[in-house]
Each structure stands twice: as C-alpha cells, then as structure tokens.
C-alpha cells in the first residue's frame, strides 16, 4: 500500500473554523506542505493576520505570532531581523494586506525582507461579514457596495502581484488560484518556490492566491470556484510576475 495523499505534518490536527468550501483550508495545507518539503518546521515562525485567518496560529505546528490588522509584514520584519536564519511567513487576507496593511506590504517588499507573504485574495472582508475589499471587482455586490462596486464612487481594485513586480526588493511574485486541481497544484509549486527563495536569501517573496468566500459571496462552494474562474481570473491574470531566480532564457519565454 503506497500513500498517495496524506496531510502535512506542519498542519495541526485541529478542525478548522472556516466555512464549508472556503479555500483558506487548501491554502493552509499548501503552506504546510511547503514547510514539510523543506523540512523547516523547527525554524519557522508564521505571522497570523486579522481576518478569517486570525486563528491561523491554531493550524500550524511551527511557532506563531498574531499581528495587528495589516501589520504582519512589519511584525515579520522584526522576527526575521531578530533571527535571520529563521523562516518567516505571513498569511494575510486582502483587507489585511491590500487595505490597512498596504504600506507595510510595499515597504517590506522594498526592503527586500527575506520573508514569504501568503496573500489570500477573495475580494471581500470575510470575518466581518462580507464588506467590500480593496480587491472587490467593479460591479461586485457586498454589504458595503450593495449596488455593486462603482469605480466612480468606490474606486478601482488593486492588482497586488503586478504592483509587487515593480519593486526591486521583490525576488518572487506569482498569482495563482485555488479554483481547480490544476491551479491548486500550481499554487503548491509557487508556495514552495517562495520558501526556497527565502531559503536562498534572495529577498521578498509573495504568492497571491485567488480564493473563494462562499458564505459572503452568497453562492455554493462549487459555484464559488466558477466565480473565481469567470470573474476573478480575467481581472487578476494568473502567472509569475517576478522571478529574479529565473535565468534570462526562462524569463523571456
């Protein structure tokens, strides 16, 4: 009997509080799989955000620090500068990273902090019950954009991976999605790559994961996957936006 699939050791054996079908659960597993693959659980410190993933500190078997809303990249900077040989990752939602924590994100990237940022983009504030997020798509109905997001009133969403690619301190930036097996597999590779970039002290790495929020989008978990494909991916194209490790040949393909 060969094990084809088992749960990563870096993931605790605690039932998660996430809603049914919420892809946070998949993202947690992929991060834990990367930690297992590099065998770094003993040297890793994770930084939990404020948002649905605020309880992330219950789900990883490495040391965890809970950061104020939006401040995870700054907290991670402090942890990494204290012990540069430790692996440090933040796990943040779109409100945490792209709204209140934008400055911390940009400046941690600009400093080339050797940390890995896991950015869950589900275009909504989940924990607080479905408000518009900085990544909510024009027309998207939320509790604070009940008539659909109108750019002339609520402005345009931020494309974080593209922004990150313009910053010299960023070594690796990729956007992936969790809407089907193929994309989840790609996300796994991307997250492991980010941790490898950190291991090789190449600078800041960020993986943006297009994710679902069935509860606050008001759709079934399966329909939510379609929403990611039909609505989000067109607005947030997948792909590697920066990779300083890629040789010139690869990068030009």
């Amino acid at each position: 009997m060969i094990n084809v699939f088992e749960n990563p050791k870096a993931l605790t054996d605690i039932a998660s509080h996430y809603c049914p079908g919420c892809t946070h659960g998949i993202a947690h597993r992929l991060v834990a799989e990367a930690i297992d693959a590099l065998d770094i659980e003993g040297q890793t410190i994770g930084v939990a955000p404020v948002g649905c993933a605020v309880f992330a500190y219950n789900y990883f078997n490495c040391d965890m620090v809970q950061a104020p809303h939006g401040r995870a990249p700054a907290v991670a900077t402090g942890i990494k500068r204290a012990n540069p040989d430790n692996f440090v990752f933040t796990y943040q939602g779109d409100g945490d990273l792209a709204a209140i924590g934008t400055a911390e994100t940009i400046h941690a990237a600009a400093r080339g902090e050797n940390i890995t940022v896991i950015f869950i983009n589900n275009a909504i504030y989940g924990m607080t019950g479905g408000q518009m997020a900085p990544t909510s798509i024009p027309g998207q109905v939320t509790t604070t954009s009940p008539y659909g997001r109108k750019p002339e009133i609520q402005g345009f969403p931020l494309r974080i991976s593209e922004m990150m690619a313009t910053i010299d301190g960023v070594a690796y930036a990729e956007r992936v999605a969790l809407d089907n097996v193929k994309n989840v597999r790609r996300a796994k590779v991307a997250i492991q790559k980010a941790f490898e970039v950190q291991r090789d002290k190449k600078g800041f790495s960020i993986i943006e994961l297009l994710s679902t929020c069935p509860t606050n989008w008001g759709v079934s978990p399966v329909t939510a996957l379609d929403y990611v494909r039909e609505k989000m991916i067109p607005y947030y194209p997948l792909g590697v936006y920066k990779d300083i490790t890629a040789s010139k040949k690869e990068a030009s393909e």
Binding site: M1, N3, S16, V181
Partner: peptide, 21 residues
C-alpha cells in the same frame, strides 16, 4: 484510480488516499 483529486480540493484535510503497490 487513486488520483487524489478529491483530497487536493478538500479544504479540511478530510481525505487520505492510497494505492496498491
């Protein structure tokens, strides 16, 4: 066919998959 697609998409670590040697 032990492809584990189900486990890959499971958000709650419910599924483990094996295959015959």
């Amino acid at each position: 066919i032990s492809c584990a697609f189900c486990a890959i998409m499971c958000p709650d670590a419910v599924i483990t998959v094996v295959k015959e040697e």
